[in-house]
Design a protein around this nucleic acid. Structure first.
Lengths: 110, 110
DNA sequence: TTGTAGTATCTTGTCATGCAAGATATCTTG
DNA sequence: CAAGATATCTTGCATGACAAGATACTACAA
């Protein structure tokens, strides 16, 4: 899978997944792979910086959880601004995909 | 339109357009904008380097045309390898879009 | 009790690529 | 002749995904 296609879509994916419920980083990596049927992979080294960007932009908010047993987890929840952004990005993505399809279209019709 | 979405798709667009018929750079810029309904824009400063990459990879081949009147144009035609690559990239794109849709899906159902 | 594997977060450096900005040259039109 | 359109090309920059590795704790087996 060409890695370049992913550009800019990871934020959209994260906001979508966090829009459903609170999640922590390691969990998100697995969720992406599972939900995409293994077609989409995001490394954790990629994920965390994206989460920091989203946090800095005010789209998500973190919360540490220190369980009695197990490694501490940093849970992220989406903010209201994050929900707005998710909507905006989703619309933008769909428009882009439609625009690209309009170009590939004739190829598909052959 | 988030510029990042375009990443990696320009080669696919070029190979698709050149797969239809021979075209020159300046013409391609206009074709992309027209075919996408103005939703997709590619600058010529972006286009030419992509064409060189495709040429170097053997996916397209250039031909200069010096008309009696008018600025010289460099026409590109697609090669057999280019057609293969176009098919490959198209399939990859569709798979990627499907994978992303699988993640956005629930959002869309709401 | 040691070592190995799993869970979980984080950082650094690198690479690819789209873009802005500008250069160049020719043709057309007023 | 000037201005704008046509057409190609180059340089430098910013962004972001990734590889690779560091850290640290837990769990389990030998």
């Amino acid at each position: 899978m060409s890695r370049e296609f992913k550009r800019g879509t990871i934020e959209l994916v994260l906001l979508t997944l966090l829009g459903e419920r609170e999640r922590y980083g390691y969990e998100i990596v697995a969720a992406i792979e599972e939900r995409s049927g293994g077609r989409l992979e995001v490394r954790d080294g990629t994920l965390y910086p994206v989460l920091y960007r989203l946090e800095e932009a005010g789209f998500v908010a973190p919360r540490w959880e220190n369980p009695e047993r197990g490694v501490p987890r940093k849970y992220y929840r989406i903010t209201d601004e994050g929900k707005e952004e998710a909507k905006r990005l989703t619309a933008e993505w769909r428009e882009f995909a439609a625009a690209l399809d309009a170009i590939l279209e004739r190829e598909g019709k052959r």
